[in-house]
Simulated assay, not measured.
Amino acid sequence: MSDEKKPQNPKGKKGQINIELDETVAQGTYSNLAIINHSVSEFVVDFVNIMPGTPKSKVKSRIILTPQHAKRLAKALNDNIKRFEKAHGEIRDYEQPPMPLNFGPTGQA
């Protein structure tokens, strides 16, 4: 055995991840529609911003997740919605007419 010490992170916690948030990513992208497709090995979530009176919209961001991460995301969203509603009241889900989405065939991996 050598006398060298194993490096530790500043707080001495094992398994801690250092995550950077780029300035342009930190500004975020607005989305009022999410389109979700899945295959056996992945979930694909396309975030779209549809504006009234605009005949065409583009996908602003696409996130690809493993099924396990998709399930964790769904659980985390559900937990956060419950906490939000406890603090601010129920989020109303307004009825909207179905939107025809013709983005081509569903995705496959």
Score class of each variant (00 low, 15 high):
residue 1 M to A: 14
residue 1 M to C: 11
residue 1 M to R: 09
residue 4 E to V: 14
residue 4 E to L: 15
residue 4 E to Y: 15
residue 8 Q to D: 03
residue 8 Q to C: 03
residue 8 Q to S: 10
residue 8 Q to M: 09
residue 8 Q to P: 01
residue 8 Q to E: 13
residue 9 N to H: 04
residue 10 P to D: 12
residue 11 K to W: 10
residue 11 K to Q: 07
residue 12 G to H: 03
residue 12 G to W: 03
residue 12 G to K: 03
residue 14 K to N: 08
residue 14 K to I: 08
residue 14 K to M: 08
residue 17 I to E: 03
residue 17 I to C: 02
residue 18 N to D: 09
residue 19 I to T: 10
residue 20 E to K: 10
residue 21 L to E: 14
residue 23 E to A: 15
residue 23 E to L: 11
residue 24 T to F: 07
residue 25 V to K: 14
residue 25 V to T: 12
residue 26 A to T: 05
residue 27 Q to M: 10
residue 27 Q to A: 13
residue 29 T to G: 02
residue 31 S to N: 02
residue 31 S to R: 01
residue 32 N to E: 06
residue 32 N to C: 05
residue 33 L to W: 03
residue 34 A to Y: 07
residue 34 A to L: 11
residue 34 A to C: 09
residue 37 N to L: 02
residue 38 H to K: 05
residue 38 H to F: 08
residue 40 V to W: 05
residue 40 V to E: 13
residue 41 S to I: 07
residue 41 S to G: 06
residue 42 E to V: 05
residue 42 E to N: 15
residue 43 F to T: 04
residue 43 F to H: 06
residue 43 F to M: 03
residue 43 F to P: 00
residue 44 V to D: 06
residue 44 V to L: 14
residue 44 V to M: 13
residue 46 D to M: 13
residue 46 D to C: 12
residue 47 F to A: 01
residue 47 F to R: 01
residue 48 V to R: 00
residue 48 V to D: 00
residue 49 N to P: 02
residue 51 M to F: 05
residue 51 M to D: 08
residue 53 G to A: 12
residue 53 G to I: 08
residue 54 T to A: 09
residue 55 P to C: 11
residue 55 P to Q: 08
residue 55 P to D: 10
residue 56 K to C: 05
residue 56 K to R: 11
residue 57 S to E: 02
residue 57 S to T: 04
residue 58 K to D: 05
residue 58 K to L: 06
residue 60 K to V: 04
residue 60 K to H: 04
residue 61 S to P: 00
residue 62 R to C: 13
residue 62 R to G: 08
residue 63 I to T: 12
residue 63 I to G: 06
residue 63 I to N: 06
residue 66 T to Q: 05
residue 67 P to G: 09
residue 67 P to K: 11
residue 68 Q to C: 03
residue 70 A to Y: 09
residue 70 A to W: 06
residue 70 A to R: 04
residue 71 K to N: 11
residue 71 K to T: 09
residue 71 K to W: 04
residue 71 K to E: 14
residue 72 R to C: 01
residue 75 K to Y: 01
residue 75 K to R: 10
residue 78 N to V: 02
residue 79 D to H: 00
residue 79 D to T: 00
residue 80 N to F: 02
residue 80 N to H: 12
residue 81 I to G: 00
residue 83 R to F: 00
residue 84 F to P: 00
residue 86 K to C: 02
residue 87 A to N: 14
residue 88 H to M: 11
residue 89 G to D: 02
residue 91 I to Q: 03
residue 92 R to M: 07
residue 92 R to G: 03
residue 92 R to D: 06
residue 93 D to G: 05
residue 95 E to N: 12
residue 97 P to V: 15
residue 98 P to N: 11
residue 98 P to Q: 10
residue 99 M to C: 06
residue 102 N to S: 06
residue 102 N to D: 11
residue 103 F to Q: 04
residue 104 G to E: 09
residue 106 T to K: 15
residue 107 G to R: 15
residue 107 G to D: 09
residue 108 Q to C: 05
residue 108 Q to T: 13
